[in-house]
Nucleic acid binder design. Structure first.
Lengths: 325, 325
DNA sequence: CTGAAAGCGCTAACAT
DNA sequence: ATGTTAGCGCTTTCAG
C-alpha cells in the first residue's frame, strides 16, 4: 500500500504540532480559525483519513459491535441483521456478523474473537448451551435477542424478545377455527423458543377442548435433516389435517413432503412470516415477527447500555401479528 | 470493563520480559520449554487474550475484510455473504457487511469507512456509479463480484462473475421451447448485469426468429417500486404469454401482480433460483447462480491477491445452471 | 491558543 | 534463550 497519511505529516504541512491537528479533529473550539484552516487545507491536500485503529487503541472504543446468530440464511435473521446494520450505520458503528449454526463451540469461538477485537458490545441469539456468558465477555455489554438468557445470566442482561407462546396460540387457534380437527406440531428444540411455541400450541388445543397427544408433537433437529421424515410420519400415522410449524425452515421442509407425496389437503400454520407464503397453493397461516424492528431495538438497547452501564436491565417484548391466508 | 489483561502482566507473573511473552505467542520455537510453560500458566491464570487492536496496529493487518453489496435481504446476496463468511472464518478473518441499496453515496461512505478501519481488502458488488475505485481505496485489494468494474478500473481488479448473457439466453430459450409465443422482459438497470441479461434475452429471441420489439422490454428501477405497474403494462398491452424477470426481486413483484389480477396463465423465467420457487403454482424456469460458491471464490481470490500483490489480474466466470419446472 | 511528552498493547530489531 | 528499546497513529494531560 502507498504509505498512510498520518497526523504527523499534516502537522508538518501546516507547521503545527500533532496535538493541534488532533484538536482540529476532536475539539476544534480550542483552536483558532486560522490554524483550523491551515490544518484542513493540509488534510484535503494530502487526503488524510484518521486511522480508526489508532483511535480505538487510545479511546478504548472500537465503534464496532458483534451480532451472533444461528444463520443469516434464515430470512428471519437476515431481516434482523439488516435492522441492526441500518441502525448501527446511522450511529457510526460497524457490525460483524457471526453464524453459529447452533453450534456452541462456534459460538464460543466467535465470542472470543469479538472480545479480542474489543467490540463495544454483542447482540446475541444464544444457542442456549452456555449458562454463563458473563464469564466469557467480562463486562462487555450483551443484548439477548430471540432467545432468553439462562442460568446465571438470567437477570443480568437486556433482552428483546417476542411472545412466542401467544403468537403460537393464535396461530393454532386460527387453524382450529378454520375447521382443523387434528392439529399436529413440529418445532425446533432450539433454546427457549421451541418450548414456548409448544406451550402456545398446547394451550390452544386445550382452549378448544382438544386432547393433547404427545405423539402429535415432533421435535426437529436444528439442521432440519430429518424434518421431512418427521412430517411424513405425523401425517401418515396420525392422519392429522393441520400442521403447526415452529419456524420457516420447518415449513419449507414440510412443503417439500407435501409436494413429493402429492398431499393436496393440509392446513398449515407457521411461526414467522415470509412474503412468498402468498404464492404457495396452500393457504398458510403465519405469525409475523417484526424482525427488522427487533434488530433496531436491540441496537438501541445496546447503545443505551453503553451510555449508561448501570441502568436497570430492560426486557422488551415485541408484538407479533397473525396473518391469515 | 474490568481491566484488560496485557502482556505486561503476564510478563510480571512469569518473571520474564514482555518480548518473551510475545515470542511464546508468535515464535515459540525461540523460547525454552520451561519458560513457555511458565508463560502459558500465567495466561491461563490471568485469562489473557491478546488485543487484536494492538496487533493490527503493529502488524499493519487487521484480519478483517469488507463486503459491499446492495442488500443482504436479497437472498442471492445473503447466500453470497454466507459463503464469504464461512471461508473467512476458516482463515481467521472477520467480515464487515455493508448494504449500499444501490446508492453511490452510501457506497462511497462505506468504502471510506473500510479504508479508515484498515480492512485488508474489499469484496465489492459495485453500484457501477464510480469509475475510479482505485483512487478511493489507494492500494487496498478489491475483488469485484456480480458486476464488472468500469472505466479506469476495468482491468485493474480481480473479478468473480457469472455469465449473465448465456444464463439468460438459456432461460428464454427454454421458455420458447415450452411454447411461448411472445416473451417480454423486465430487468433491473443495475450496473453491468442488466444489460448482459437483456442481451441474452435478445439473442434467444433472434435465435428463434422472434422479432425484438422494444416495447416488450421494461427497465425496472432498482428499488422495485414500479415493477408491478411495469409488469401489468406489459401483460395487458402486449398480451405476452411469457415473462423473463431479471432477478428474484422482480419475479416476486410479478407474482404479486399475477395474483392480484388473477392471471392464471403465464410462463415465467427468472435469473437466480430460490428454493420456494418449487411451491409456486406457476412452473418457474430459473437460472441458478452458485451464490455461495461465488462468495468463497471471491474470498480465496482476495487471499491470493493479499499473498501475492503482483500476480496478474484474474477473471473468474462461474457456471449457472438452468432449472426447468 | 499551542506544544511536548507519555502511553494505549503489541512486535521486531538489536543486543547480550 | 532472553531482555531492551523503539514505535505503530492517535489523544490527552500538563505546561507555557
Amino acid at each position: 500500500m502507498s504509505k498512510q497519511v498520518t497526523i504527523k505529516q499534516i502537522a508538518q504541512y501546516a507547521g503545527v504540532s500533532e496535538a493541534t491537528v488532533s484538536r482540529v479533529l476532536n475539539q476544534p473550539e480550542l483552536v483558532s480559525k486560522q490554524t483550523i484552516q491551515k490544518v484542513k487545507d493540509g488534510m484535503d491536500e494530502l487526503q488524510y483519513r484518521p486511522s480508526a485503529l489508532a483511535q480505538s487503541m487510545r479511546n478504548h472504543t472500537t465503534k464496532t459491535i458483534g451480532v451472533v446468530i444461528s444463520n443469516v440464511l434464515n430470512p428471519f435473521f437476515t431481516t434482523l441483521v439488516r435492522g441492526i446494520e441500518d441502525a448501527a450505520t446511522k450511529r457510526g458503528y460497524s457490525v460483524i456478523v457471526c453464524n453459529t449454526d447452533e453450534n456452541p463451540d462456534k459460538e464460543q469461538r466467535y465470542i472470543n474473537m469479538l472480545v479480542d477485537h474489543q467490540a463495544d458490545g454483542i447482540i446475541l441469539a444464544s444457542t442456549g448451551n452456555h449458562a454463563n456468558y458473563h464469564s466469557m465477555v467480562n463486562d462487555m455489554p450483551l443484548v439477548f435477542i430471540d432467545r432468553m438468557p439462562q442460568g446465571k445470566d438470567a437477570n443480568l442482561y437486556d433482552t428483546v424478545l417476542v411472545d412466542n407462546e401467544k403468537g403460537s396460540f393464535n396461530a393454532v387457534d386460527a387453524l382450529i377455527k378454520q375447521g382443523a380437527t387434528r392439529v399436529n406440531a413440529i418445532v425446533s428444540p432450539v433454546a427457549t423458543t421451541g418450548t414456548e411455541r409448544l406451550n402456545g400450541f398446547r394451550k390452544a388445543l386445550t382452549a378448544h377442548d382438544f386432547p393433547i397427544r404427545e405423539q402429535d408433537i415432533a421435535l426437529d433437529d436444528y439442521l432440519g435433516q430429518h424434518t421431512a421424515e418427521l412430517a411424513l410420519n405425523l401425517i401418515q400415522t396420525n392422519q392429522c389435517d393441520a400442521l403447526f410449524c415452529g419456524n420457516n425452515v420447518i415449513l419449507m421442509n414440510v412443503l417439500k413432503v407435501l409436494k413429493e407425496w402429492q398431499i393436496g389437503d393440509m392446513k398449515l400454520a407457521v411461526f414467522d412470516d415470509q412474503p412468498w407464503f402468498d404464492f404457495v397453493q396452500y393457504p398458510i397461516i403465519s405469525v409475523d415477527q417484526p424482525a427488522y424492528l427487533i434488530g433496531t431495538k436491540a441496537f438501541i438497547t445496546l447503545m443505551d447500555r453503553l451510555a449508561n452501564p448501570n441502568r436497570p436491565v430492560t426486557h422488551d417484548i415485541v408484538r407479533t401479528k397473525l396473518v391469515i391466508r
